[in-house]
Write a protein that binds this DNA or RNA. Sequence first.
DNA 1: CGAACTGTTGAGCCCTCTCAACGTGAGTGG
DNA 2: CCACTCACGTTGAGAGGGCTCAACAGTTCG
Lengths: 244, 244
Amino acid sequence: MMNIAASPLTKKLSAFVALSETELAVLERLHQRRKSFSAGRDLVHQGQSEQAAYILASGWVVSYKIQADGSRQIVDFQIPGDFLGLRSVLLHTSDHGIEPLVDIEAAEVMASDLLQAFAETPRLATAILWAVSRDEAMVVEHLVGLGRRDADARMAHFLLELGARLSLVGMGSKAGYACPLTQYHLADALGLSAIHVNRVLRKLREDALVTFRDGLVTFDDYGRLIELADFDPAYLDQARPLLP
Amino acid sequence: MMNIAASPLTKKLSAFVALSETELAVLERLHQRRKSFSAGRDLVHQGQSEQAAYILASGWVVSYKIQADGSRQIVDFQIPGDFLGLRSVLLHTSDHGIEPLVDIEAAEVMASDLLQAFAETPRLATAILWAVSRDEAMVVEHLVGLGRRDADARMAHFLLELGARLSLVGMGSKAGYACPLTQYHLADALGLSAIHVNRVLRKLREDALVTFRDGLVTFDDYGRLIELADFDPAYLDQARPLLP
DNA sequence: CGAACTGTTGAGCCCTCTCAACGTGAGTGG
DNA sequence: CCACTCACGTTGAGAGGGCTCAACAGTTCG
């Protein structure tokens, strides 16, 4: 088996556990059933009882919840290397919808595959538990943003976090990144109205902090933006592997 | 080994996976190092790099993040059977603080214990992954509350969720439950000011929906409260085990 | 070439915040 | 046993951040 083109998930997990040849092989086997999905067509509907999870190989995905009153809260965006719908499989009910923002490629993973992989290599179980915990840490940070940051800081923090995540898989830098999100996506993610998002973006742009325009995020003053957002990327980055 | 007095965690996990004798024994072994902690003294400080996680045996605990400006966002409250600081161990950095609200008892679990347990019984790994996913589902629901619910619905949803969780471990019912939280705790959890919490509670009480008073939550009209909160406990309750 | 989606701007309003004050009960020390 | 403090709860008044309603411009696409 060739390990030259490691999948984004493998890259991510390798930062956490030093994976052996065997473990890499098992991980690679999870990527076998490759599937494609079209932008805008839900992968998982809210309320559906789903058996399969996915590992995102390319493209952007949004996870959201629809309220009874019709309003939408975006929980997170997924980028390559992230799991899709793992929670739905484990909880045996999908409490949220999953929609590709662009055409995507993803590997299908059944619950039984996961159990078998864990049986073969317990360290892999720990590594995946780590990945799930990291996802939770992001949701927690998101939560703090909604609860205790004003609209400007919330937006700044969001754009910085996304940039950091993209940098880890080679899709961004401290200069900026390509971003297919609309202002409506930002609004539903940040708990704001689309109109207010527009005003906030204008303010950040006029203050020469960030520019969000034409599918491109440009950091005009990275340092000052970090200060405004009170951003600390510790929870995203893995300084050193925990398991030897 | 006697299984008569199953720990709260065992109860929770058993609802998800049918655990064998061996698995129960391994799970029981994780409970060996019993420790006590006093109310108000942080178990884990924010920023600390922690090696041990805990399984809460009795008492209430709060997980929170302090912002640079001094404001506090409570991420969640833990009740018996919940993990404490598992994320801190896995991410190798504590992005949040953990404080006992009352005197508590908890079993210390080292990262190595966990790895060893996974090696012996991979199904246990899946079960714990489930528990972590359930925690994440609660944080997600919390996120939706902050992003898309007004203060009244947010409070109603919070009190209902807590009631449902407590019911699962035998500490509450549809009539109500004992609750050691102050209005300041509610404020920091729900992203409101303590003053507004007070007003919201008064309104809910005057509308004969819930009464929060003297450490006691009483549901005056469970049905109407669920309607106001748009509450769906699917993500908390396990209809049937996923793994045979 | 109309329809749908996205972005932009203005005006007014309301939910929730902040500031300020006061009440109550539990400790605690003199 | 009383004064004092401290934590928690309660209420009022005014301010402000973000929402809603309304309108319009640019693009893409069928």
